[in-house]
Amino acid sequence: MSYENPQQPDGINVSKTHPLAEFFPLLTVVVVAVVGLVALLSLAAGSLARLVPFEYEQKIARVVAAELLPPGGTHTDTEGYLQGLAQRLATEMALPPGMQIHVHFEDDDTVNAYATLGGHLVIFGGLLDRLPSENALALVVAHEIAHVKLRHPIVAMGRGATVSLVLGSLFGITDSSAVRSLIEFLGVTSTLSYNREQEREADDEAARAVLGVYGHLAGTEALFELFRNMAARDLARPPEFLSTHPGTEERLARLKALAAELGVSGTVTPLPR
C-alpha cells in the first residue's frame, strides 16, 4: 500500500465569477423586484380602496378620530370661519352626495394642513398666521378638499398598509440591516412619485374651485411664495408638508400658467382677524 498526497488543482471549490460581476446584477434584480412589487401591489390596493364607500370611510374615521384630530371646542370662531369657507368651495367642487367636509383648527405654530379619512381637514395655526389673504387660504382648503373628493386619504391608507405588508414580509427573509434599509428606501421612493401625482391633481382641482368662488386667482400665489421663503430660510430641514409634494417652483409655475391663460384679475379678499 502506498501513501501520498499529490498536488491538487486550486480553485475548484470557489466560483470563478468576479464578486462585483455577481453583485451588480443581483442588486439590479432586487431593486427592480422590490420597486415592481411595491408599485404593483400598492397600485392594486389603491384602486380597491377607491371602491370603499365614503360611509365606511366615515365609520373608520369615527373610530380613529381621537387620535387623528385635534380636540375641538376651543377655537369655535376660527373653525366656524374655516368651515364656512370650506362649504363654499365644496359646493363649487360638486362633491358626490353624502361627502361632507369637517374643518378642524389645530392651535400650533406648525405650517401645515392635511386631509384625513372621513372628510376631515386639519388647518394649523402656523399656516393661518402666515397667509396674507383669504384667497391663499382658500387654495389650501380647496387643495385639501380635492384630496377628499379624489379619495386620496383612503387610497393612501390602502397603499400604506400594502407597502408595510410587502416590506414586512421582505424583512422576514433577511436579517441584514443593510438590506433592510435598502428595501425601505426603495419602498418609500417608489411611492413618492405617485404622491406627487396626487398633489398635482389636487392643485388643479383647487385652482379651479378658487376660480369658481372668487372669479379670479389673484393672491393665491402667495401660498407658494410662503413655501419658497420657508425653504430658503430652512435649507437643512424643509417642512414635512413639502417632501411628498412636487417642487414649489413647479407648483407656482402651474398656477401662474393657469392664471395667465384665464387672463382675469381681481381684488384680493383679506382674512378676518
Partner: peptide, 17 residues
C-alpha cells in the same frame, strides 16, 4: 461587502459564491 451580497442573495436564492 460579502455580508451585503449574501443578504441580497438571500432574497432571491441561489449560490452565495
Amino acid at each position: 461587502f460579502k455580508r451585503l451580497a449574501a443578504g441580497l442573495r438571500a432574497l432571491i436564492g441561489g449560490r452565495v459564491s
